[in-house]
């Protein structure tokens, strides 16, 4: 694959992912911009009783009182599921489970349902404080040190995919274990490597990085009847790329890596890898 082709593919991927993210954001806004959940601050807080924890003694979770006029409870975490119960203003609720953006709540009379975090802006705890259920923004990505990435691309023309498990030791330095498989016409490559990644500007939303790695590469010729031997060599690699923080949990990355295979023959072999994909941060 030539460079312009790769760039075109990478740009397209970025645009697509961005479009999907925007569309998802927009739809959530449309669905949940419910004026009834606005916090009612016109009345003094002292007028209302404060929620007590005694209702569900022994249970874990957050005990809260609903200060919005009402709260729709869905049967399952998703906007497509039916609303089966409506919690009333000043009703005591227990929050005890979470799936993505949805929280499971239980009313005092045992009704259990789910509500999207955007509808939970008027929950007051037993100290009288309102709960903050907003999701962390992309800037909080720094608090998720473990990264799992899946990348696809090309290695000297062959279809390639990689799985990467990384751990960030400092804001700038992380280490990664990578497993890559490339399917060429003549042979299949398997690459396992240990890489050090340096991010000079970790606070940028689109953060550049450089990598330095070493590992083993095994090349196995594709043949059905006559089976030539698998060749195994070590290699060193240098690379550079870009990491885009979409949210605190999700990132998009693209990278170029040049591997120098230390063969037992007269000259070393060079392999170029172009890859793009996405990452989950934990």
């Amino acid at each position: 694959m030539t460079l312009p082709n790769f760039l075109r593919a990478a740009c397209l991927t970025l645009i697509l992912v961005r479009a999907v993210a925007l569309a998802a954001d927009e739809r959530v806004k449309l669905t949940y911009s419910d004026p009834s959940v606005a916090v009612d601050t016109l009345q003094s807080r002292q007028e209302w009783p404060i929620a007590g924890a005694q209702a569900w003694s022994g249970d874990t979770g957050e005990f809260v009182t609903l200060r919005a006029p009402y709260l729709n409870l869905y049967t399952a975490p998703g906007r497509g599921y039916p609303i089966f119960h409506v919690a009333e203003k000043n009703e005591k609720l227990r929050i005890f489970k979470r799936k993505g953006d949805w929280y499971q709540l239980e009313t005092e009379n045992g009704k259990r349902g789910w509500a999207h975090r955007n509808t939970l802006s008027a929950l007051q705890d037993n100290q009288g404080l309102y709960l903050d259920v907003t999701n962390p923004g992309w800037r909080d990505a720094a608090s998720n040190p473990v990264q799992f990435s899946v990348l696809g691309g090309s290695t000297s023309g062959a279809i390639t995919y990689s799985s990467i498990l990384g751990y960030r030791f400092t804001p700038n330095i992380s280490s990664e274990i990578r497993y890559t498989q490339a399917f060429g016409n003549a042979s299949t490559l398997k690459v396992a490597s240990l890489t050090v990644v340096h991010q000079p500007c970790p606070l940028w939303r689109l953060a550049p990085f450089v990598t330095l790695g070493t590992g083993a590469i095994s090349s196995r010729p594709n043949a059905v009847i006559l089976k030539p031997d698998t060749r195994q060599d070590s290699f060193i690699s240098v690379g550079a790329g870009l990491f885009f923080h979409a949210t605190a949990r999700i990132g998009i990355r693209a990278e170029y890596i040049k591997d120098t295979v230390l063969t037992r023959r007269e000259s070393n072999e060079e392999i170029e890898e172009w890859k793009a994909g996405f990452s989950l941060l934990f």
């Binding site: 916090v39 957050e62 489970k97 979470r98």
Partner: peptide
């Protein structure tokens, strides 16, 4: 006051809430 309530909020304690992803 209504438009910008400026309510002090407490972060929900993730330790008390089981996440199932």
């Amino acid at each position: 006051d209504v438009i910008q309530p400026g309510i002090e909020r407490r972060k929900i304690e993730s330790g008390k809430i089981d996440s199932e992803n």
